[in-house]
Nucleic acid binder design. Structure first.
Length: 686
DNA sequence: CAGCCTCGAGTTCT
DNA sequence: CTCGAGGCTG
């Protein structure tokens, strides 16, 4: 393809995406992909100026007023900011270097002072205040002419309709970004979903769509937010000498200004960039990156503009959190409980800082809702929750002949019938332990740290042991010898010995660990502990009737039924017998009631963050040894929240509910203060 | 019966 | 960590 043809093709594609994005508010590709096309065209035109046409999208900032919104000619053009291509810390230095060169500064001259702020992923607006009253709000549009969206903007609570001053300037235009907080976005989509309406792909589109709502009553229901970041036209206003001064002044006038900003030298910019990168996922809103501006307004005017972009500002972006990739296959995984989970195998993409190759599709109805097919081009996101997600499909890019995904009627591993219970979204393999996949998962579950803890028995080894037919059941693990392990690949003498040693060590365990390890449905760690405490020994539990089980706290009909059914199976009793015969053992007691009241009996603790010296397990063991309970979520019944470094949402919840918090020292003091049993004073850090 | 609290189960990558 | 579902409480 010639350069001429390529440029024409890019222009056509960009024009089509522009229409979809700006006019229809229904984007067809992620922003990063659009940027890539745009940059390719820019580069092509830069190398071959003869290719530039008058209607090229690079000649204007895309956008067209919708029918129904009056055009607004901006008194001062709304420009875009150049994007620094280097996404490493060096990007800030490159910008500093360019600024210093333009200003004719020598290395020995003092550093330039910059302001740094966040680059919001939203929609730029110009707010015009006359005599202190909001008279007009306009979108950027093509930079020269935008759309009058005053009515909708008036509904945004954080935007003052009147400036907070007794002597307002005749004209003050404020520029900023409309955006949606992530939680507001989720709530908005949730509401749309429950009404059966179309949902928005991301907060940015939801914000843009809301501002372009022709009906202000609908816009008013959209929980939009706004941050001011600059000025347009001003008359009769004493403009501060610096950008940071302008923002402070706007804040004083009652306009929302983001407090995540800083002023300083290029070193401070680098620190800011790194600090925000680390916290990006936990910010309540989406950002593209950060923006650096020369702080002094007089220096800004000395620097001026190159074509349409200011030389005194740059956007320093972060790796995109959304990318395009293709679905190579949709495979079905079998979980420990037999649950069949469709997983998209993706052509590897770098998104949100890691390379993603897999994304769960959860269940059949999820696949159906998104209509993901093999060969599809999909948008993949890796946002705050870290786990990659297929956001949606680009139907235009679907290869001909792609067929809808169908959940198999049989287990892909063992061929047993897959059943979908009434009212459930999940399908399950009915093969039970006949199914090698479930058997492997059962073995891994039994061996995991919180169960009997067989160090060194990971998924690779289990895979081999089961596939080679060496291990079929839990007791088989205890009949392994050096000879059998030697049959495995990549199993040297030393590691075989280590594994056997771990298996030997796991024989000495506790009843709760053992029970949890059996993998009875609905019996997790907490329930296993309750059962062990109530019955005291395994035989009492195995012979318990449904009614006996219902007497255990936290056990209702569903859980009781599950336990009863489990031990009614001769095969499971056999497994337990054999495990005991192999030497598995624990201290058995007499059951309920025996335990004397411990100092922390009835108290519930929640751990969050990383404690300075104690591991989570150590802290939990310490609390439990004094009769306290460790739970995973904060509620008003929680007695204490133990807070470590980088505490998450649980601390917020604790503050909200007014729950007492402890740090590690406080926890230790509480434990020692009333300790009946001496606790070790020196705990080795791990 | 509704709403809250807690637990179980599943998930990705380094 | 988050979602969904089981169990308990008012």
């Amino acid at each position: 393809m010639s350069f001429l043809e390529r440029a024409a093709a890019l222009r056509a594609q960009i024009a089509a995406h522009d229409h979809a994005y700006y006019v229809l508010d229904a984007p067809t590709i992620p922003d990063a992909e659009y940027d890539r096309l745009f940059r390719e065209l820019q580069a092509l035109e830069a190398d071959h100026p003869e290719l530039v046409t008058a209607d090229s999208p690079t000649r204007r900032v895309a956008g067209r007023p919708l029918d129904g919104f009056a055009p607004v000619r901006h008194a001062v053009a709304m420009l875009s900011i150049r994007t620094e291509t280097d996404t490493t810390a060096e990007g800030a230095r490159a910008f500093d270097g360019r600024v210093r060169r333009e200003l004719g500064l020598a290395d020995a001259d003092p550093p330039v002072v910059y302001a740094a702020e966040l680059k919001f992923d939203g929609l730029a607006l110009n707010l015009r205040y006359e005599q202190g009253v909001l008279v007009q709000a306009a979108t950027r549009g093509d930079g020269e002419t935008g759309e009058d969206v005053t009515q909708n903007v008036r509904t945004i609570r954080v935007i003052p309709l009147r400036l907070a001053t007794s002597s307002p300037p005749p004209v003050l235009e404020v520029r900023g970004e409309v955006y949606l907080r992530r939680d507001d976005f989720e709530a908005l989509n949730e509401a749309a979903r429950s009404r059966g309406d179309k949902t928005f792909v991301n907060p940015r589109n939801a914000a843009a769509g809301s501002i372009r709502q022709l009906d202000p009553a609908i816009a008013a229901q959209r929980p939009l937010s706004f941050f001011a970041y600059g000025l347009g036209q001003t008359q009769g206003w004493a403009v501060p000498a610096t950008h940071s001064g302008v923002l402070d002044a706007l804040l004083a006038l009652g306009l929302p200004v983001c407090h995540e900003r800083t002023v300083g030298t290029v070193e401070d910019l680098i620190r800011f960039h790194a600090d925000i990168a680390a916290r990006r996922d936990s910010l309540p809103f989406d950002i593209d990156g950060v923006v650096y501006k020369v702080d002094s307004l007089s220096l800004q005017s000395r620097l001026g503009f190159v074509t349409r972009e200011p030389r005194w500002a740059v956007a320093h972006k972060y790796p995109p959190q959304e990318m395009l990739t293709t679905v190579e296959a949709i495979e079905v995984q079998v979980g420990r409980t037999g649950k069949l989970t469709p997983v998209a195998r993706l052509s590897p993409v770098f998104v949100g800082g890691v390379t993603v190759t897999n994304a769960t599709l959860h269940n059949a109805s999820e696949v159906q809702r998104k209509d993901v097919r093999v060969g599809d081009t999909v948008i993949v996101r890796r946002a705050g929750d870290v786990i990659p997600e297929v956001v949606g499909v680009l139907p235009d890019k679907r290869p001909p002949g792609a067929v809808p995904f169908a959940m198999p009627c049989t287990c892909p591993v063992c061929g047993s019938v897959a059943v979908q219970e009434q009212g459930e979204v999940d399908s399950r393999c009915s093969g039970g332990l006949v199914c090698p996949a479930q058997r492997k998962q059962a073995l891994l579950h039994f061996a995991q740290r919180r169960a009997v803890d067989i160090d060194g028995l990971g998924d690779k080894i289990v895979e081999q042991l089961v596939d080679a037919g060496i291990v079929r059941t839990l007791p088989d693990l205890y009949r392994l010898g050096v000879l059998k392990l030697a049959e495995l690949e990549r199993m040297a003498e030393r590691s075989a010995a280590n594994l056997l040693e771990s298996i030997e060590r796991s024989k000495q365990t506790t009843l709760p660990r053992f029970l949890f390890g059996l993998g009875i449905r609905h019996v997790g760690e907490a329930t296993a502990k309750d059962l062990a405490r109530h019955f005291g020994n395994l035989d009492a539990l195995m012979n318990a009737s449904i009614d006996d089980l219902l007497a255990v706290e936290q056990v209702g009909p569903v859980v009781a039924e599950s336990i009863h059914t489990f031990f009614a199976q001769p095969h499971q009793r056999e497994v337990v017998e054999q495990l005991r015969a192999c030497g598995l053992g624990w201290a058995e007691g007499q059951g309920a009631g025996g335990a004397a009241a411990l100092p922390q009996s009835g108290k519930t603790f929640v751990l969050t963050g990383t404690l300075p010296t104690l591991s989570r397990e150590q802290a939990q063991a310490m609390i439990e040894s004094q009769g306290g309970k460790v739970s995973g979520s904060v509620s008003k019944k929680t007695s204490y929240v133990v807070v470590g470094a980088d505490a998450g949402s649980k601390l917020d919840k604790a503050r909200e509910l007014g729950i007492a918090t402890l740090d590690e020292a406080g926890l230790l003091a509480l434990m020692h203060g009333k300790a009946l049993v001496a606790q070790p004073l020196s705990i080795p850090p791990d």
